[in-house]
Design a protein around this nucleic acid. Structure first.
Lengths: 203, 203
DNA sequence: GCATGGTAAGCAAGCGCTTAGTCAGACCAC
DNA sequence: GTGGTCTGACTAAGCGCTTGCTTACCATGC
């Protein structure tokens, strides 16, 4: 979040105040929700006074919006990059699901915020985020459509199948816990198989 | 919720105060979350003063707990009934998913509360709800285990597959909107197919 | 000598919940 | 039936506290 300043190299261990506030807010929003989190929770966790939040952000809502926007754009980049690695629809869908799911397991804190705190955004900010989310659908649906056109996939409703595949990944953010039964890679690999089966690809 | 009183038959159109408070709370919690909902929101929507809430419920949290407990027990009954209708694992899993998904689409308001407001419960109440949710996993896993044992299903990890199938249904509550592109029955039928494919049943 | 980044103190509003009391109907001796 | 008592649902008012956010001010480094 901070512009690089060559004149103050500073230790990597201590991120700047703006970043610390963002991290603290992300964790608080993920565990207690936007309305369950106070500005004092955030600023205290970042080691600052309540007023410091307003030096770096206009409001609590705008801080959520910024975290949400950054998170959504990062995830969109993840799935676009996965699709770009191949021309084969089955490979594309498999890679997309694997990367999407792994990301939701590894970054489940952030993923919880971007998936479950949308309703706390202002109307304008909400609309802006929904536009990015719509791109998720488009990317997945396009891959499925191409797979169907190539005869590799079979599904009675590509749009609903795309939604279901994204659902699978999103819900990982809800239930995944660090140090639980599975690693992110294990979940990702299994979900790749499930998604390919959902579109009718036989092993 | 109200005990029948023969001496005051009253019109069916107007539920009693306790029920109205419950319905108002469910809708408010679903759309704004537990912490985003005030006791004044709830009581006003039920057509009463703020103090009326405390005539029928000990606290806002206990009202959430009661809604959550009732909702979970109802859903558990839905999936148990679906499994009880057949002895064939494929039929059982198909029926279970179809009924579970339809329920989450039709009753998405209640389903949002029971799936996404757990963190607002007290520790004791949370634990009690988790016990019911564990039963969901057990029911689905048992069906899949029996299908695998019978040679009807094939999956590298029955436990994770069970979780993924429940995920699919739970996430319906997040995205489903009344009057949207699909009816609950259409979603349920499609998800039945997806779930059966996920366990390796070919059409 | 002035941005930049921070704080102490506190404001107005809103919060969950309580208190003291009203009122309609059920109950019952007479 | 009638008058008296009791009970349970409900409210007006408000308490003590917390909320998001502001203001006035201070320290540091270019």
């Amino acid at each position: 979040m901070r512009l690089v300043s060559a004149s103050t190299p500073e230790p990597v261990l201590e991120p700047d105040a703006r970043t610390r506030l963002g991290q603290a807010a992300l964790e608080a929003f993920a565990s207690r929700g936007f309305h369950g989190t106070t500005t004092r929770d955030i600023s205290t966790a970042a080691g600052m006074s309540p007023a410091a939040l307003y030096v770096h952000h206009r409001s609590k809502e705008e801080l959520l919006f910024e975290l949400s926007r950054l998170g959504h754009e990062r995830v969109l980049e993840v799935i676009r990059a996965a699709v770009a690695r191949s021309d084969d629809p089955a490979q594309q869908l498999g890679d997309l699901v694997e990367d999407f799911v792994r990301d939701h397991a590894v970054a489940h804190t952030g993923a919880r915020v971007i998936n479950y705190e949308l309703a706390a955004l202002s109307e304008e900010h909400h609309a802006e985020i929904l536009a990015v989310r719509h791109e998720f659908d488009v990317v997945v649906r396009d891959v499925i459509d191409r797979g169907v056109a190539a005869g590799a996939f079979a599904t009675p409703d590509a749009r609903m199948t795309a939604l279901a595949i994204l659902s699978l990944g999103i819900d990982v953010a809800r239930w995944y816990r660090d140090g639980g039964r599975w690693t992110p890679d294990e979940v990702a690999a299994h979900y790749r198989l499930l998604a390919l089966r959902m579109v009718g690809v036989a092993e």
